[in-house]
Amino acid sequence: MAATLLDAVSAVLVLVLVALGLAVVFGMMRVINMAHGELVMSGAFTVVWLQGWHVPFWGCVIAAAVVVGFFGWMIEWVLVRHTRDRPLDTILATWGLSLVLKQAIVLLFGPGSHSVPLPLDAMVGLGALNYPAYRLVVMAIAAVVIAGTYLFLRCTNRGLATRAVMARPATAELLGFNTDRTYSATFAAGAALAGLAGALVAPLVSVDPQMGLGYLVPAFLAILVGGAGALGGVLAGGSAVGASTSLLGALWSPVTVQIVVFGLAVVVIRLRPQGLMRE
């Protein structure tokens, strides 16, 4: 029972971490990044690649965030910027990019799956329960990153500027803010979050070129369920989708769970188009 609950918390935190980058980009820039799942995958493959060079795991994690963040910066510069007033074409372009990234990974690493050894093998005793230490660490990091993102946006000048650019880009320009630079920084940050998430989950899942879609769809549903724009929405949506997936997983087969959760999510989106956390 306690283990099931911890699993659910872990699922929620990982999903929110994955959805966070997507939500930042969607909420701030109204850009739907269909390649987000592949950015998560790129993060995981950065770890696979660097581990081949015997880089210590935590070094790989940091490198993954940096590398994928840089990817994001380039994507914004090359694709997103030029389709800003055509949102459906942004979807198309990033969707195409997801195919390109997937195929690039197939060419570089082959179509098969890879596994990353657990950096921490230990189990931690929590009362009567033994829980894998690495999972706890991932949960802690996810919680810290989520809280950090929130604090950054709430309490720093740069976060304030980002919120201003999001709300009224033209007015922000009038006050001297370079909105283009804010956009590329935001997109890069969203990508870096995806890379970080991918690196952190790499030891827990099988790392393969097709893994992206499995992150993209739940993350999007989480954002839509919770309500785009507000970070609180990501938390609520991520909790709803992640926890129900994880808890129902104890009862039913994964496919049934996925069908039920996706179905419910679509119904919620339908009934509350603004999301659960509408202000």
Binding site: V78, L79, H82, T83, D89, L92, A93, G96, L97, L99, V100, Q103, A104, L107
Partner: peptide, 12 residues
């Protein structure tokens, strides 16, 4: 890879 890249270029 080529097809995907052309697709992206067309979309943009």
């Amino acid at each position: 890879l080529a097809l995907g890249s052309v697709f992206v270029l067309v979309a943009v």
